Simulated assay, not measured.
Amino acid sequence: MYFLIVSGMSGAGKSRAAASLEDLGYYCVDNLPIALIPRFAEICLAATERYERVALVTDVRTGGDFQQLFDSLDSIRTMGCDYRILFLDTDTPTLIRRFKETRRKHPLMEKGVSMTAAIEKERELLSMLRNRADFVVDTTALSAAGLRERLLSLFSGVDSMGALEVIVQSFGFKYGIPAESDLVFDVRFLPNPYYEMSLREKNGTDPDVRDYVYQGGTADALMSHLTSLVDFLLPRYVAEGKSNVIISIGCTGGKHRSVAITEALSQHIRGREYGVVTMHRDYQR
């Protein structure tokens, strides 16, 4: 049996994440008291295959006693239940905007406490859980559809969860560096198809755009260095026990150069028999 613990900042998209996970066949439970997790696992183990994959949504409403959560998770692991932790994060200005749009009150807002202060308090309370997370997804720049796509890519298969999962994503620096990145590479020095009118509306998955990016040999030299570095790092991440590595490749708008290099690097890593998820955060903007 596999448990996915879903947590993160209030307003970061946990409810939408749970809906996407339900579509993947997860049995989702929101805000189950931490003390009941081992007992709940026992019930699931004694039940049918309906409970083969379970997603538990937890946050500051549990009281912030996350050491008790870790103890409960250690307990279910002794029962033979594997688990991973997914943490959804979002920057403070975006959270404030989302709460204002929905006219909802932040769960930590009390009399005399501003929303900014409540959000920062929550961020501090959740820091231990974020540090222990196997997957951190920054939803700041993600639409509802983008979050769904990311989760479907990450959790559509159970078998891959035990191996190193490498997420290679393109992004545009003008929209911000993905906060969840483990490695960030800037490819803005490569030839820019944006200035070719016939290529401007295409993206880096198009062969013509790729050929333009690779003209002159600079991109080939980059890929030689980049693949050597990745081949050196990934086995060492496996030895360290990491289950998830996020490599982010950026250009100005995230549509041409970064997309072309992301596609090439993903193909190289996939040939090394790692689990690979390829994402293009900004190429449709």
Rank of each mutant, 00 (worst) to 15 (best):
Y274K: 01
Y2Q: 12
L222V: 08
A239M: 15
E120Y: 11
Y2M: 12
Y27M: 10
E124D: 11
Y27W: 11
L152C: 12
T92W: 04
P191T: 04
V276R: 01
D91K: 14
S127W: 03
L36H: 12
R123C: 03
G64K: 00
I119D: 03
E110Q: 15
V238L: 14
C28D: 04
L32A: 04
F87N: 10
L125S: 06
L126H: 02
S10Q: 06
Q68L: 15
V137R: 05
H268W: 10
A221D: 11
R104V: 11
S228F: 12
G112E: 06
G254Y: 06
G80E: 13
R77K: 14
F3M: 11
P93W: 06
S266T: 05
N131D: 14
P93T: 07
E120A: 09
G13K: 01
G64E: 02
I37A: 03
N244R: 15
Y2I: 10
L4D: 01
P93V: 08
K100V: 09
Y237R: 10
D186T: 08
I43E: 04
K255R: 15
R16K: 07
E124Q: 14
E196M: 07
I96M: 15
A133S: 13
L21G: 01
A163D: 13
L73T: 09
S10R: 02
L147V: 09
H280M: 14
L36Y: 05
F135V: 08
M279A: 07
G241M: 10
K105A: 12
P33S: 13
D89F: 10
V166G: 08
V209S: 02
K174R: 06
E165R: 12
R97I: 12
Q68D: 13
F70A: 01
R97P: 00
N131P: 01
L4Q: 02
S114N: 02
G13D: 01
